[in-house]
Simulated assay, not measured.
Amino acid sequence: MPKDFKSNLQNRAVGRALALWRKESGLSLSKVGERVGWSTAKTSMMQNALIPIVDADVVALALVYGVSSRRRMPVVLGAQRARDPSRFDLLNDGVTTCVGWTYAEVEAEASHVQMVALDVLPPVVRTPEYDAALRSAQLGAIPQQDHRHYGDDQRNRVMQHLGQGPSLRMDLAVGEAVLRRPIGSPLVMADQLLRLVALAELPGLRVRLVPDELGAFPGMTSFSLLSSREDEFQPVVYLDTLHGGTWLEAESECSLYAETFDRLAALALPAADTIERLVEAAQSLKDSAS
């Protein structure tokens, strides 16, 4: 393994594709090693994106797995892009399609997620009714895309990990304005807030409210900071945008968001006070609906 190697998101996307190909083929690591002429450890490290993945090795594995050229090419290009994403994009002028990734795929590799939600609640904690109301309001204004869409399977997986405790930790800082923003009917909002209260009981999830009386605070923007146990996977930041999401990978950029989250968490309400305000807001909404 190269010294001080850090696997970027593009390299990780290529690794996921290689893992999927082998799963579809039904071949064992040892059988793959025999056919391509390298060790089982190399195939495993490529699948887990623990080493730089070169395009020639992608082609070799694609031939072993019987992958069509149509499916192979985006992964080959992804391996080329992973070496120097900025230069690759400059030379290709954004017209070349590489294998990509979703928020859920990156989150599945994370051991710690730190989120700031100042406008709307993040998908992972939304009720179906809250999510539907939000999507309905966005139709016509925001193009349909699934960059951060959560299916039920993905949400259930995250909740299972949060319930188990050490496998995943999630810290969520919620702006108090979110409690008052009417998404759907008052009952929809009330149910959403009560669900957030229930989720806060999970061992791996901590919810903290950023109160209005705090006024201006550092980093007044919503974001997610995802960190992994593996040293090869550096922390990354996700920002919601109209075109489907922006990822930041540079250490100098991510460190600013990590520092911002720490400062914000220190200013947020304690967990008990947060729960109290969530329950009060939910009850107020139910009373107004009746």
Score class of each variant (00 low, 15 high):
4 D>T: 10
5 F>C: 05
10 Q>N: 08
12 R>P: 00
24 E>D: 13
29 L>W: 04
34 E>R: 13
38 W>I: 06
41 A>K: 13
47 Q>L: 09
48 N>A: 14
51 I>H: 03
52 P>C: 07
53 I>S: 01
56 A>R: 14
67 V>S: 01
70 R>A: 13
71 R>T: 04
72 R>E: 12
80 Q>T: 06
84 D>F: 05
93 D>P: 00
94 G>N: 11
96 T>C: 06
100 G>K: 01
101 W>G: 08
105 E>N: 05
111 S>N: 12
114 Q>K: 13
117 A>S: 12
119 D>A: 15
120 V>K: 00
122 P>R: 03
128 P>I: 06
128 P>L: 05
129 E>F: 01
131 D>G: 04
132 A>K: 05
136 S>D: 11
138 Q>I: 05
139 L>P: 01
142 I>S: 00
149 H>M: 09
150 Y>W: 14
153 D>A: 14
154 Q>Y: 02
154 Q>D: 09
160 Q>H: 11
162 L>V: 07
162 L>M: 08
162 L>K: 05
171 D>E: 15
172 L>S: 00
179 L>H: 03
181 R>A: 14
183 I>G: 00
187 L>D: 08
188 V>N: 01
190 A>M: 07
191 D>V: 05
199 L>A: 09
201 E>A: 14
204 G>C: 05
219 G>M: 08
221 T>C: 11
228 S>F: 08
230 E>A: 15
232 E>F: 13
232 E>L: 04
237 V>R: 00
239 L>F: 15
239 L>C: 09
243 H>D: 14
246 T>P: 00
250 A>V: 08
250 A>M: 10
252 S>W: 07
254 C>S: 09
261 F>D: 00
267 L>P: 03
272 A>M: 10
275 I>S: 04
276 E>I: 02
277 R>C: 02
282 A>M: 07
287 D>V: 13
